[in-house]
């Protein structure tokens, strides 16, 4: 508790902001330490309008900052800037929250090479392996706004076999970072990743290809959007290359 002593009022200088805010004088901040007698003497000779304990001061300083030293002012500034930054980022996320990111992406499977070879990525069992060539045509330029950092576009092959009812293989992807690069027109591009079947069920199989994309935002939800257009095509009945054990 800061000691309060009535003195004749004409000698007393009242700090004008002490009662409303918690601004500090450097000599007030050390009054807890008993060794600082000179500071204590200053305090004893000082009259406050109102008694303020340290706790009351801290409670009040929720709404205003301590500004009495370089470190306190820097702290106040960084804290307030980050608060403003957080509000701005939230506003940015909110401003794009209800935009639609669906676009029609035309995809056509051109041709497939089927192989029956050991799956060297796992257990060397004989599995079906496919190399798909396809066309993709999609205009994603309209997706870019101030809350889109990049797009991750990928092509999925989906099919059902006797062993597994639901198979999904991502065979190609691309990262788009700029609006100018977002007009995709791919012709006869070969699949980028291994298209392994879990077993040997790719012959005479109807496989559906479709394009999806992740919208990676500055702030907010990371969306996963699939194009409504799909391309279903039949895989060949013969292998191009067969390995027998």
């Amino acid at each position: 508790m800061i000691s309060v002593r009535p003195l004749s009022i004409e000698h007393v200088a009242l700090p004008p902001f002490w009662n409303r805010n918690c601004y500090f004088h450097e000599q007030f901040t050390v009054h807890r330490s008993p060794s600082r007698t000179s500071s204590n003497r200053f305090l004893e000779n000082f009259v406050f309008r109102e008694e303020l304990s340290q706790k009351q001061c801290e409670t009040r300083s929720i709404f205003c900052s301590r500004m009495h030293s370089l470190a306190n002012r820097s702290n106040h500034l960084v804290s307030y800037t980050l608060t403003v930054m957080a509000i701005i980022t939230g506003a940015c996320a909110l401003s794009t929250r209800f935009l639609r990111y669906e676009r029609p992406a035309r995809v056509v499977g051109r041709r497939v090479e089927l192989h029956h070879i050991p799956n060297f990525t796992t257990d060397n069992a004989l599995n079906d392996f496919a190399v798909v060539n396809f066309d993709v045509k999609v205009d994603l330029r309209g997706l870019f706004n101030w809350n889109v950092k990049q797009l991750f576009v990928y092509l999925t092959a989906e099919y059902a076999t006797d062993d597994n009812v639901f198979n999904q293989v991502v065979v190609w992807d691309e990262i788009i970072e700029r609006r100018e690069d977002a007009l995709l027109d791919l012709n006869d591009v070969a699949s980028e990743y291994f298209f392994w079947d879990d077993g040997s069920g790719l012959r005479n199989r109807n496989v559906t290809l479709y394009v999806s994309w992740n919208v990676i935002p500055v702030a907010g939800a990371l969306l996963d959007v699939a194009s409504p257009l799909t391309n279903r095509f039949l895989f060949p009945s013969t292998y191009k290359h067969v390995v027998t054990k």
Partner: peptide, 20 residues
């Protein structure tokens, strides 16, 4: 490095105004 009470009040007000 310290400011007087009035100066602290001014500095806080000014910094809030600038950032906002």
């Amino acid at each position: 490095v310290h400011m007087d009470f009035d100066g602290q009040h001014k500095a806080e007000k000014l910094s809030r105004i600038i950032i906002t």
